[in-house]
Design a protein around this nucleic acid. Structure first.
Lengths: 341, 341
DNA sequence: TGCATCAATGTAAACCTTTACATGTCGGAT
DNA sequence: ATCCGACATGTAAAGGTTTACATTGATGCA
């Protein structure tokens, strides 16, 4: 249409009666330009409404001001909060965020590769635990990359995540100081590394306190509500009941509470229960769940800060930044019951 | 570092022993190139691993393959699902998505303006109900733009949203066919246009059925849990109780149910309650809430489709696309109570 | 044979910016 | 008076692509 095509540096130069080089300098290296011309130029910029054409700039400089963020699932609430952190930090440094999601199909990642190859993105933030771009894409091909939430297996890439071990320690300590001595752990050790770390935190916390964790109180689920329920049922069947259930995530905790309530017990009067993650439902369970809050936006912020540091040319040695999460105390933990059930 | 700087069109040309023009043509207008050279070129591309440099292309063509999506709050779960729809549709057409959020500060929008002015984004998707870029940014300055979820006030911009009126009609019909005749509406008429439409749907549905809605059964809240609770309390105080509460959104419905439960009544035995939006908690309330599901990813998809159509040069007449949402039947609606409370 | 037409390809300009290098000017030191 | 250095500014190349226009060669037709 009649789009009044936006002003170029040449328009500004003409108006200010200087060369385009001077305009560029007035913008990027003001100290190299005399006071008076600087003024003229800025005036001209204001009048014309000039903005640097990012594509020309990117072409000339060989880099862009975009960062590609690839996640398995954009709809994941985990994602959206981390994204906020990422975005805030990026914007503060003049970077924009380009997003893609793989929907857990590894091939889908390939489609985003083009943003990197074509130079449209200067850096990469990965949510998936693995490099999504197939094996052939050697690490050397990738731009500066930082993993979020999960370490990246295929090697050599820094990441920012949660200190799951410390989170689990905090949970154990909370239960111990409430008086519990017999604490079951309902875990998951098939998929996420994070879940294994939580188990380690449980074991370490118990051991350090002088209560080596009993094997029959460590159960394996799959992280679902159903598996939480099943684990509790199992303990009832075996008649080896603890006074508290520490669950590897909130879904499992919800399942555990459902099982207890179905059997007519009350939380936290008869049993205490803890979760991990602080999913949105955690404050709406009955009773509201004591859990570990994921410091999502902080993680996002840190990851982006690390990436931008790299883009600025910082040494690329591998780093692992773990953010320690906080315990959110609600009402699912109480003192252990005194008398037999 | 020793980044093996990616192949340019010139590398391909050299390898295929043709000119760069021919390479470009082989890619974009294959019919203009002879069978044999086309083959040579594609071979060379495969060998070199060439990808078009998007910045150079964008610079030359004067447009990019990025679309800017600006939302007030990225963390909003509403947003993330619409974003999925947007992203899927965009990717299918070779576009990438650039995101920004205003955090409800109008000034923040200005910062994203640069992506548009600098030609880095070819189109704009707006979540905010208003143009975020201040008044001075006349509509003519903006690239093709489509609003999502809310119409855009400052005029002339197409949008894709939910048919709130039809959603409300569906709710009313559901309650009516469950036997309710005295239905209160707990609304909100200050901020979102959508909320007004829901009220209109309520009024229309009742009227059409032959029950002109009674004024004292139409209440105004502010869309929060607390206001739902307050509205119910008010009706109790006035002793003008309906058999069902139709709420303008799920938060309000949650508040209403809390109030009823606090007074010792059961839903849906004593009162029926409906919500609107199908927020994640809606399936975890007690009882699970019957509500209207926002067709989020469909909206996203449609909005992006509309925008891409515009980018392709389609006539820019203003359009309003309303997606009809579905009723999700859970357990908060039953037959009206037969005897006085 | 000569000429018009057409298909296939090449040449070079343009998109807008940044920056190395060249130019010019001025002040101060010799 | 001459020269040098510092400073301010201009000139022009380069970055990778697309495409209008020019060129080439071949084909068809008179």
């Amino acid at each position: 249409m009649s789009q009044p095509v936006s002003a170029t540096i040449e328009d500004v130069a003409r108006l200010a009666q200087v060369s385009i080089a001077t305009v560029s300098r007035a913008i990027h290296t003001p100290e190299k330009v005399s006071q008076s011309t600087r003024q003229k130029v800025h005036q001209a910029i204001a009048i014309t409404g000039y903005t640097t054409n990012a594509m020309a700039r990117g072409l000339r400089l060989g880099r862009s001001n975009m960062i590609l963020v690839v996640a398995p699932d954009i709809g994941d609430p985990n994602f959206s909060h981390i994204l906020m952190g990422l975005e805030n930090e990026a914007r503060a440094h003049g970077y924009g965020i380009l997003i893609g999601h793989t929907q857990n199909e590894p091939l889908r990642g390939m489609e985003y590769l083009k943003f990197l190859n074509s130079g449209q993105a200067a850096g990469l933030i990965l949510f998936t635990g693995t490099l999504p771009f197939g094996h052939q894409a050697a690490t050397t091909q990738l731009p500066p990359t930082v993993g979020v939430f999960e370490p990246i297996f295929n090697g050599g890439i820094s990441y920012v995540g949660v200190d799951d071990l410390m989170g689990a320690r905090k949970t154990v300590d909370h239960l111990l100081s409430a008086g519990h001595r017999s604490i079951a752990f309902i875990g998951e050790n098939r998929t996420r590394l994070a879940y294994q770390r939580r188990r380690e935190g449980y074991v370490a916390g118990m051991s350090e306190f002088g209560i080596p964790p009993e094997k029959h109180l460590i159960l394996d689920g799959d992280g679902t509500v159903e598996s939480g329920r099943a684990a509790v049922e199992l303990l009832f069947m075996r008649d080896m009941l603890p006074t508290a259930f520490m669950c590897v995530n909130d879904q499992t905790a919800v399942g555990a509470m459902l099982a207890l309530s179905a059997r007519g017990y009350q939380v936290p009067r008869d049993f205490s229960v803890t979760g991990f993650d602080d999913i949105p439902q955690a404050s709406f369970t009955n009773p509201p769940l004591t859990t570990i809050r994921q410091p999502r936006s902080i993680i996002g912020r840190q990851a982006m800060a690390l990436l931008i540091e790299r883009l600025g040319g910082a040494a690329a040695e591998e780093r692992e930044i773990l953010v320690v999460p906080d315990l959110v105390v609600r009402s699912s933990v109480g003192a252990p019951r005194q008398r037999p059930l």
